[in-house]
Simulated assay, not measured.
Amino acid sequence: MGFIGSVFSPWYHWSGRGDPANHCCLNVATYGPGGRFAMTDRGRDALRQTDTRLRIGPSEMHWTGHELRIDVNEISSPPLISRMRGRITVTPAAVTGVELPLTPDGAHVWRPFAPVARIKVDLDAPGWTFSGHGYFDANFGTRPLEDDFTYWTWGRYPTRGGATCIYDATRRDGSTLAAGFTFDRDGTGRDVTPPPVTAFRRSNWLLRRETRADPGTTPRQVKPMLDAPFYNRAVVETTLNGETVTGVHETLDLTRYANPLLKPMLAVRVPRRSGWPTARPGGSASHPG
């Protein structure tokens, strides 16, 4: 994930969040035995943008016109510190025009650019290769998430016809968001009324987890991915409109995240690097990572 204004960075929070470009990062996570996590909070000198490129420090995203190439060159955070280097390529089946305001005033917007895609992962470590079904989206916001939300869950489930995305959230004012979309392989998106909200097993940090499921069925975690005190990501199996589907599910507890005692813990996993070498006229700069 590429961030300009690193939403979950304690350094961005402590700065007052007045300068998003001064808190950017490329977040990379691998899972399973030997999994790594990189999320270095970088200063504005590390940020370079064009219409088709986003460069953050030594890593870069490049849209070629038909695929997104993500060149990764990061160092993972404790406890397993090592270089994470390689390329991830996302090839959309189609690019959608769907946008979903998450608050009535549009302060937060979800944009599923490619709900159906192919992904190829080729990172420089044993077992860090993959080719299969992928996805690409973005979120935009003008206020801190914890100012507007207390809790949300999100899920994207590949289906026989394309993909279904579910967004449920509870806002601070007590109102709720309950959104469902199905996407065909050509990128056509349609609003759908998803089946009921159904709880399943809490995370290891006892986060309440729920997603949509047909009556009489119960979702289940198939594979753990990322588990934190305020956030959980997992591969989840559920049943939607008679079809058993397996996809990525996320739970986010913004009340927990707002707790100031959590920020020093996050700082261990999200190191700050404010400086970055810049090229000089007639010369070049090295980029050590």
Rank of each mutant, 00 (worst) to 15 (best):
A169K: 11
Y231M: 01
P126V: 14
L47P: 12
L252G: 08
D124R: 12
G127S: 00
L68N: 07
H249R: 04
N204A: 13
I4C: 06
T91W: 11
S6N: 15
R201V: 11
P215S: 15
R160E: 06
L226G: 04
Y12M: 09
L266V: 02
V245P: 12
R172G: 03
D122E: 11
T278D: 07
V222F: 01
V109G: 09
G187R: 09
F3K: 05
L207Q: 05
R55N: 03
G43L: 08
P104E: 06
P158M: 10
D184Y: 03
G86M: 01
V245T: 08
R156H: 14
T52D: 09
N241L: 10
V192D: 15
F8Q: 08
T218P: 08
K223S: 15
F136M: 15
K263N: 08
T129H: 08
E146W: 12
G132I: 02
P10V: 01
G155Q: 06
D253C: 05
D71E: 15
R87Y: 03
L54H: 04
F136E: 09
V95Y: 00
F200H: 01
G180A: 12
S77R: 03
G189R: 06
Q221R: 14
I119K: 00
V116F: 07
P196T: 07
H66G: 12
S131D: 13
T251V: 13
G57D: 09
T170D: 13
R220I: 02
N259V: 12
S175C: 12
V28T: 14
W128G: 00
P126S: 11
A94W: 02
T150D: 10
G282F: 01
Q221H: 08
T89V: 10
L226D: 08
R160K: 09
E243M: 04
D105L: 13
S203L: 02
T89S: 06
T218Q: 07
R17F: 04
E210Y: 10
T89E: 05
L240Y: 14
I166S: 12
T244E: 10
E74K: 00
R17P: 05
Y157D: 05
G247S: 06
D122H: 03
F181E: 12
V72T: 06
F136S: 12
L123Q: 02
T52W: 14
V7H: 09
G2S: 14
R55T: 13
Y157R: 04
C165L: 11
W11Y: 07
Y157F: 13
H13T: 14
P115W: 07
R156S: 11
S9T: 02
G180R: 07
D173Q: 08
K263E: 11
L262Y: 07
G43C: 09
E74C: 07
P219D: 13
L123V: 05
K263P: 05
S76F: 04
L226R: 10
R220V: 07
G283A: 15
A178C: 13
G242I: 15
W14R: 11
P78I: 00
P195T: 08
W152N: 11
T40C: 10
G16D: 01
D147V: 04
V98S: 13
T64G: 06
R171S: 09
R212P: 13
D147R: 15
V222A: 11
T40V: 10
I4K: 04
L262N: 03
A228Y: 14
P288W: 04
